[in-house]
Design a protein around this nucleic acid. Sequence first.
DNA 1: TAATATAGATTGAACGTTCATTCTATAATG
DNA 2: CATTATAGAATGAACGTTCAATCTATATTA
Lengths: 205, 205
Amino acid sequence: MSVTLDHPSEASRAETRRVQIRAAAADCFRQRGFHGTSIAQISKAAGMSTGHIYHYFENKEAIIADIVAQDLERSLTLTTELRSASDVKDAMVERAIEGVEHNLDPSSAGLQLEIVAEAARNPHIAEIVRAADQACRDSLADTIRIQRQAAGHQDSEATIAGMVEALIAMFEGLRIRTIRNPDLNQAAVVQVFRRMIHDLLSQTP
Amino acid sequence: MSVTLDHPSEASRAETRRVQIRAAAADCFRQRGFHGTSIAQISKAAGMSTGHIYHYFENKEAIIADIVAQDLERSLTLTTELRSASDVKDAMVERAIEGVEHNLDPSSAGLQLEIVAEAARNPHIAEIVRAADQACRDSLADTIRIQRQAAGHQDSEATIAGMVEALIAMFEGLRIRTIRNPDLNQAAVVQVFRRMIHDLLSQTP
DNA sequence: TAATATAGATTGAACGTTCATTCTATAATG
DNA sequence: CATTATAGAATGAACGTTCAATCTATATTA
């Protein structure tokens, strides 16, 4: 009954398969980690043969890199969204709950931690992760700089950079927290985070 | 030239070997991750045969568990130290630099991230990590509760728990930050962290 | 339209390697 | 001499990757 893809082109068929493999692989990686997952497991989860995987990805590392790149693209989008808010401080305080919720999701957190751990020792993955992180930091620094200037504060670039790092550390730290304390009180964290973000952005020297 | 171990007892000789294996394994794990490290590599790094490893550890997972447990013991010690300070708020602000430095050390951070990533999918490791985390949280909650009460604040247990989580998230988040941004400005982070910790502990409703 | 040709999607077995673990034999110790 | 420490070869399973063969569906031909 497909209207759009009665005769899928080579390109779209290939993309469908790639999406299929990515999804299956991400699932396996979440459950068993990058190096605990075999190609056989990915192929089984994707419903295709092992050999077929290699028509769409050069090797296992290419699948990992693809998932990492896609994942980072998403987080850049989120960061960029903030800039369009009229009052950045209010927006960040308001939207703290979304950030907390997102980073506390255990299956998302598990994969993200797997990615950072891999980046800590795999230069290829590190390169991808660091480029994306720089883009996020730059975007967030712009956002904060504009808000601080509008509020009449005069900050050095180092101070802005410190604020950016602290802010990101708080949220990324939640990925570790949700693994180490699965019973964590989310509402309480949201409340404290809101206050901390407000204070951070209003802070005077 | 050993003074202490000229005639090592069975127990101390075995312990020496275990220490040797742990150190070698931790080194390998930092460089290649738990599942990227083979027993052959550990035995080579420890300067002994593969078979010999199995005299001191039941299997590879036992080595991992041992390293995890030892690592967590150390962080519990650090947390507990804070309680003895006369002015907790001042002590935490003063000692923020140590916490930042420690968590920003890339080789320490790499292994810690490996551990959390493993805990996200390995129930046995998760159990060890979570028990230690609970002890740290309880200790830190006590510390903060005492300081807040002494300062005349009336907090719910949920608020204290939220503060604890936020505080730990900040510092643990630095382990991710140092991987994703190796050029991070440590001094700037220390300054922002100090202010944030002070504000958090002085916060009124 | 029926028969054939062709491309590329897909399979699963096979390859060589590496893995964790066990076994066997020798050396050191007390 | 008995026990333990140690080495290193042996084992079989599992790994990532490759490849020849097959299947499917469209295009071409007559």
